[in-house]
Design a protein around this nucleic acid. Sequence first.
RNA 1: GGCGGCAUAGCCAAGUGGUAAGGCAGGGGUCUGCAAAAUCCUUAUCGUCGGUUCGAUUCCGACUGCCGCCUCCA
Length: 477
Amino acid sequence: MTLNLYNTQTRRKEAFVPLTPNAVKMYCCGVTVYDLCHLGHARSYIVWDTVRRYLLWLGYEVRYVQNFTDIDDKILKRANEREMTMQEVSDRYIQEYFADIRPLNVLDADEYPRVTEHIPQIQQIIQDLIDKGYAYPVGGDVYYQVERLPDYGKLSGRKLEDMQAGASGRVNEGEIKKKHPFDFALWKAAKSGEPAWDSPWGKGRPGWHIECSAMVRSLFGDTIDIHSGGGDLVFPHHENEIAQSEAATGKPLARYWLHNGMVKIGGDKMSKSLSNFITIRNFLEHPYDPMVLRLFVLLAHYRKPLDFTEEAIASAENGWQTLQEGLHFGQRYGAKLGWKLSEMSVDSNGYKERFQESMDDDINTPGGLAVIFELAKELRKESNLLTHEGKTEIASEVLEIQWKTLVELAGVLGIEAQPEAATVEEIGEAEIAAIIEQRTAARNAKNFAEGDRLRDELKAKGIILVDKAGETTWHRG
RNA sequence: GGCGGCAUAGCCAAGUGGUAAGGCAGGGGUCUGCAAAAUCCUUAUCGUCGGUUCGAUUCCGACUGCCGCCUCCA
């Protein structure tokens, strides 16, 4: 089986072959740290984390790097508003990033390079571009000259002459300095009061796109395997990264460009500028288990738009309950069934194969989840039988393999259940037995109202009664 | 204006040239005093119109609708 990934640059699914066998160099565009992360960020990092986990599961050695953009106009603005330094703002929101993203079971990156820590490398690549004639300094700024690169626009599939400058309605002043409207800043001259670094072109700071080019080159070398990010970064950000890096090195920047679809709310893209975003924090305050969000995201294919609705979340929440019951099976019944918890990797009924088949097809997580749900539902059923009937027809070893397969495959998607908390002993077994006895008496006397009342009384204390022929058993809900 | 994407059941969502996974929600039956659990059954001609084909939801074209990007953006 071969992993196929949809490459934005070629607009096709392509067989994934890393530059170095068994090792994957993956770079993901991170956040600009001036505010809390919203559900769009959550989707993006859950998706790329899942790709990373899948590659690991396939046996690749993955080096995953994700940057923090800690120099930016919006950070400066926020710093001024709050009378903080730029670094105080970015440090704060880097902390917040981890506080929000880690609970989603997104693995930490191997490295988190920051722009402010790569100024020399950035200046070096700018100098290289000037030396090679791809960039020009003007009055303290340095611009990339897009017309010098014949294939500028190859990632996003556009031509300079087709684009409408300023179509987004956000054109800055200072346009006159540029030779072409789509030339973009590699280095920006310092304005008074802003943090600035010395450079051959005067005091200033880096432009937005150059950081990724510089950090990729510095950490990985000329070419990486996978470069990922949100679909809204295709143009101009990634297009410009390609322009910079490939002009500077003469080598392809990335072999596979992967982009996730946007999260929508009420039909529109969730974004800062539309002020229609929900932060991860707001969402989890509901409260929802973070796994609900992870499941919601993975229930859709990563490249498609994902509409955030209450109904879809409710659906994910119920689905999570199902998965959780399957995932808890081992904890609940493993010991009782005499599992030895030995290492075994027998694939039962081709579950892993079917899972892999879906995931190999451009990370088709909905297909992978179908397999996971199948396992979880079977285990939930057996769990119910054990709880209510005290027995199951399925051999213990079979259940053990199924459960391990479930845990393994769910884990590939980063879906994990917390161990069930031991229930607080609000009520002793003797007391329960006494109430059951009272209830049995009431029921024998056809006083079902009293019987139901006693059942509800216990239910309120987390005790679920099950009437079977001749006896009533109980378990903690 | 340019580039790109999407349209599948009540909702979410995969997928395939030979009559469509999965999740959520719902309906009906068996069992039960009622529940719970189990179990059986049940809910789609895949946006519209053409074309190619023995046959298309799946390929091609047109149309309609929605969305994203065109120097803030995950």
